[in-house]
Computed example of a mutant assay.
Amino acid sequence: MIKLTFPRELRLLTPASFSYIFQDPFRSGSPFVTILARQNQLGFPRLGFAIAKKQLKRAHERNRIKRVVREYFRLHQTELPTMDYVVMARTAVMDLDNKQIIAQLDKLWHRIKRNAAPLAPKH
């Protein structure tokens, strides 16, 4: 049985982890959300957030987006390529309800999955 949890090792926590992704990311974006991804050698995907106060002024707005993305990631982590992901949100995301946000995430992560195979290191 597969455990669909979101433990600490699935989170991007250090500035070095974020810097690694920002150096040379694969981008998948929409007018609402952008996902940056970069291959990792850990054997499992990891998730981080870079949601600016400039984009989403209120903490409860940022927290709602993070909650929805974390839940999506938790439920789909076994289907995702072994990459590190940073999710960034834009102001327009506040006009969407949770189901619409999930639909956007589905589209973006599907695009990443489709394009991840050519990015995988060749031995």
Score class of each variant (00 low, 15 high):
residue 84 D to G: 10
residue 64 R to K: 06
residue 35 I to K: 15
residue 94 M to E: 08
residue 50 A to Q: 07
residue 79 E to M: 09
residue 19 S to Y: 02
residue 117 A to M: 08
residue 17 S to N: 12
residue 73 F to K: 07
residue 48 G to C: 00
residue 103 A to E: 12
residue 4 L to F: 13
residue 117 A to R: 15
residue 105 L to Q: 14
residue 118 P to M: 06
residue 76 H to V: 02
residue 59 A to Y: 08
residue 115 N to S: 15
residue 11 R to N: 06
residue 20 Y to L: 15
residue 22 F to K: 14
residue 69 V to H: 08
residue 7 P to T: 04
residue 62 R to C: 05
residue 85 Y to G: 05
residue 32 F to W: 12
residue 31 P to F: 01
residue 90 R to L: 03
residue 67 R to Y: 03
residue 81 P to V: 12
residue 29 G to E: 12
residue 79 E to S: 13
residue 24 D to I: 01
residue 18 F to Q: 13
residue 106 D to P: 09
residue 46 R to F: 00
residue 58 R to M: 01
residue 85 Y to E: 10
residue 90 R to T: 02
residue 20 Y to H: 15
residue 80 L to Y: 07
residue 28 S to T: 08
residue 2 I to L: 06
residue 66 K to C: 03
residue 57 K to C: 04
residue 19 S to V: 03
residue 52 A to H: 10
residue 82 T to D: 14
residue 116 A to T: 05
residue 79 E to T: 06
residue 53 K to A: 00
residue 87 V to K: 11
residue 96 L to E: 01
residue 86 V to P: 14
residue 48 G to N: 01
residue 16 A to F: 03
residue 46 R to D: 02
residue 14 T to S: 13
residue 58 R to E: 01
residue 18 F to A: 10
residue 31 P to D: 05
residue 104 Q to E: 14
residue 23 Q to L: 10
residue 120 A to S: 12
residue 55 Q to I: 01
residue 13 L to M: 11
residue 102 I to K: 13
residue 51 I to C: 00
residue 91 T to S: 11
residue 46 R to W: 02
residue 73 F to N: 02
residue 121 P to R: 13
residue 32 F to Y: 15
residue 25 P to V: 06
residue 64 R to T: 00
residue 71 E to V: 06
residue 80 L to H: 05
residue 111 R to P: 02
residue 78 T to W: 14
residue 27 R to E: 04
